[in-house]
Amino acid sequence: MNLNALWAYANPKKFIETADRVLPAVAWLAALMLAAGLIWGFFFTPDDFRQGSTVKIIYLHVPAALMAINAWLMMLVTSLVWIVRRHHVSALAARAAAPVGMVMTLIALATGALWGQPMWGTWWAWDPRLTSFLILFLFYLGYIALWEAIENDDTAADLTAILCLVGSVFALLSRYAVNFWNQGLHQGASLSLDKEENVADVFWYPLLVSIAGFVLLFVALVLMRTRTEIRARRMRALLARERMQA
């Protein structure tokens, strides 16, 4: 398969046509996988012997956290594509992904708090992972605010793309800084969320299905939002054109 064929989808018309075709399938599949994963996870897995039924929030928490990071990675890639190849659709896809990623971050934070309350006895702890996600949330906030603040679409695309690149570096720095910072403060307060390694198969398979559901949901939402962004941009361009002719 020729990778160059991929660039054809940078054509807005082609992108919309393709999105129209695949969107229903992706959306239905996402709904199916999500329902299957969550129902399986919530009702057909045994309670954990230590954590009881609270462990089941893992089926929302882990996929959401994964997608929160993946959404930013996708924005990073599409921003790079915009900077290098100047495909408008790529910039708009980054714009479309940002709110989805932000909501995923919020879900991860909220479910984490709900899980943490019975487990650790507190809604919030300045654990490195939690703190990193809070910081990620702030990065999403700034990125989205910059898109909204700038009127000219191309200027906004350029500036947000550079912000995304610089922000990625600083987000990574913050991640390590936070790790360092908390170790320095509370020795031994290891609230590790790394359950993947020791989780048993009965929990693992529904989790996989749930993760697949979240991925598909993300793809569906981004396709839909990118399509909307393309149409909105097209409308702005047509209005501007009309003003020019008048």
């Binding site: 054509n11 807005p12 097209r234």
Partner: peptide, 8 residues
């Protein structure tokens, strides 16, 4: 109908 025509 240009490649990016709708945007410019």
């Amino acid at each position: 109908d240009d490649f990016d025509g709708a945007f410019l």
